[in-house]
């Protein structure tokens, strides 16, 4: 065999892979074998260009959508295709023409060079321009959200996963923000994200009580470890190819998947986490584990079968309770700010 030049290993989407040990390489190769198997299961649906129904769809999606089918399946399961069809065909290009209305240009510009700076497409001018267009168009389309730091990572992964189809990526982003994730998650106060963090904390208490007690002892709030999980939908936290597996289920089953995955991550690392003795180390153990998570199949198995039942109704009930808490907390903060302002404007102080 001819000697091959040494190249940094990449995943199916061209993201550089950091392999701290041989196990991760094995995990990645196993993943490839699984894709080939899954392609066979999907073949007849591809041929008819019709998704399987009900429980078959759920099972196949949970097993992982083969990379080249993601664009099609995601658009269907997320509702993005419907959202696109509800607008005029020129809607996206009109948004691009209205870019001057965006109030987020400066923030987007700061983040673009820092979004997957090692990816051959996303770090090149072409990829950056595409992400710039999607994010600014979105900030015009949904001025309430504008641009939320974190969405850049999601857009990067989605754009590459849908074969660089910019408009599809735009609508998938819209579906995530407007239909799938908890309202307010990406708004200017991130109030929805705070609700999700508190909800997760409660669910950790139910599903992993020992870990919950340990976290309470260390003063390690879930927001320390999970903010990026919920704001980038794991796209900056996990290897992107693994995050795409989470997106498969997220688009189809909704935001409860974010909790299932979060609980699975914590459960799988529980033994190591229980040994930490301060919040910083806890956070570092979690981050190291999630950053190098290539055996996504095993994790998703835990997410679906290893944490017991977790219905949307359960999640919603906790959310409702937490939403009231967050609202009160935000009001207190606003009052506190107003008080400081009055004190500052008082003459002689």
């Amino acid at each position: 065999m001819a000697a091959q030049p040494q190249q940094a290993p990449t995943d199916v989407y061209g993201f550089r892979v950091e392999l701290p040990g041989p196990q991760q390489l094995i995990d990645m190769q196993r993943q490839r074998t699984l894709y080939a198997l899954h392609e066979k299961s999907w073949a007849k649906y591809v041929e008819k260009h019709k998704l399987p129904s009900g429980s078959t769809l759920k099972r196949l999606v949970r097993e992982g959508i083969p990379p080249q089918l993601r664009s099609w399946v995601w658009m269907e399961t997320s509702g993005a295709r419907e959202m696109r069809a509800a607008q005029t065909p020129s809607y996206y290009s009109n948004l691009l023409r209205a870019q001057a209305l965006s109030k987020s240009t400066a923030q987007v510009e700061l983040d673009l060079p820092r979004t997957f700076p090692n990816h051959p497409f996303l770090a090149a001018e072409e990829g950056r321009a595409a992400m710039r267009r999607i994010l600014t168009a979105y900030s015009v389309h949904n001025a309430n959200v504008g641009y939320c730091q974190g969405l850049n990572f999601t857009v990067g992964v989605v754009l590459v996963a849908v074969g660089r189809d910019e408009e599809a990526a735009f609508w998938l982003l819209a579906a995530l923000v407007e239909r799938i994730c908890f309202p307010g998650s990406f708004g200017h106060t991130l109030s929805g994200c705070h609700v999700e963090m508190r909800t997760l904390q409660e669910l950790v208490g139910e599903k992993l009580p020992r870990l919950h007690a340990h976290m309470a002892r260390l003063g390690c709030d879930t927001s320390l470890i999970a903010t990026d999980w919920f704001l980038t939908l794991y796209c900056s936290s996990m290897p992107p190819e693994s995050a795409a597996r989470v997106l498969d289920a997220l688009f189809h089953e909704g935001a409860k998947i974010l909790f299932r995955v979060a609980l699975a991550l914590l459960k799988s690392a529980e033994a190591a986490l229980l040994k930490t003795d301060n919040a910083g180390d806890f956070m570092r153990v979690v981050k190291d584990w999630v950053t190098h998570l290539y055996n996504i199949d095993q994790l998703m198995e835990v997410a679906f079968d290893g944490i017991g039942s977790l219905s949307l109704a359960t999640v919603d009930a906790v959310r409702k309770h937490k939403e009231a808490e967050v609202k009160e907390f935000m009001q207190q903060r606003a009052q506190q700010r107003a008080q400081v302002r009055t004190q500052q404007s008082r003459p002689g102080t």
Binding site: L110, D111, R114, T115, F116, P117, N118, Q149, G150, N152, F153, S223, L224, T227, D228, L231, T232, S236, M283
Partner: peptide, 8 residues
């Protein structure tokens, strides 16, 4: 090539 910090 450091990425933006999301959260903490």
């Amino acid at each position: 090539k450091y990425i933006p910090t999301i959260g903490v």
